[in-house]
């Protein structure tokens, strides 16, 4: 039921967001049409951060309560977070090419996202390499906590590093037009709904796998 509602909501929001981006919002003066990438780029960043925050909370809860469900939530959220971060990095670099003439720039937020992406890839790998699933859950929870607490320090250090070297100006104009703000807000809601939908689906899937494993073990022992 929940996933039906979320599916309908995300589809409606997706169409609205696309319509706003391509037909309603005015073109930004300095960057031209490419600036419209921003309306999906920012929501992706927001929601990957939300996803990793959920990983952090669920990891703490797992180590504390030791219930499988928290672990399932953490790993599902990490996976969706990695997908979102990947898309954030791709859209960022496609944006950078026409504006600054390079595919990649060591802009603090982009660089932090790259480090974040690597940390959560490691999170997924640790789980995969662990010798038992219970161990994997414990190890992943530790990485989920440590990795998240590392983020502010990473951001701080990269910002300090970049301010010493000249870096590209990101966004001078600001969101002058109210239609721009509306589009951004709708897009943020779109991706939050999409995140919730994917998370619910992934959690249900993982729970199903868990149940199946238990049933199989039960069937074999009989």
């Amino acid at each position: 039921m929940l996933s039906r509602i979320l599916l309908a909501l995300s589809l409606v929001l997706l169409v609205t967001s696309l319509a706003l981006i391509f037909f309603v919002v005015p073109t930004e003066r300095t960057m031209g049409v490419v600036q419209r990438i921003f309306y999906w780029h920012v929501p992706l960043a927001w929601n990957s951060f939300l996803a990793f925050f959920v990983v952090f909370i669920a990891s703490v809860a797992y180590l504390w309560k030791r219930t499988k469900n928290w672990d399932i939530l953490a790993s599902a959220s990490a996976e969706v977070g990695v997908v979102f971060t990947t898309l954030f990095l791709i859209s960022g670099s496609i944006w950078a090419k026409p504006i600054w003439g390079v595919w990649w720039t060591w802009e603090p937020r982009l660089t932090t996202a790259l480090v974040l992406w690597l940390i959560y890839i490691a999170y997924l790998l640790v789980r995969a390499y662990a010798s038992s699933s219970e161990r994997g859950a414990r190890f992943a929870a530790v990485v989920g906590i440590v990795g998240f607490l590392d983020v502010p320090i990473v951001f701080l250090s990269i910002t300090l590093w970049r301010t010493q070297h000249p870096s590209a100006v990101i966004f001078t104009g600001g969101l002058a037009d109210p239609r721009m703000i509306l589009t951004l807000v709708v897009s943020i809601f779109t991706f939050t709904a999409l995140y919730a939908l994917l998370l619910v689906q992934r959690v249900a899937f993982k729970k199903g796998e868990e149940d199946l494993r238990r049933l199989k073990r039960l069937a074999e022992s009989e």
Partner: peptide
């Protein structure tokens, strides 16, 4: 794999 991304601030 775990250590290098996490110690990025130390290296910088």
């Amino acid at each position: 794999i775990l250590f290098l991304p996490v110690v990025v601030p130390v290296i910088i």
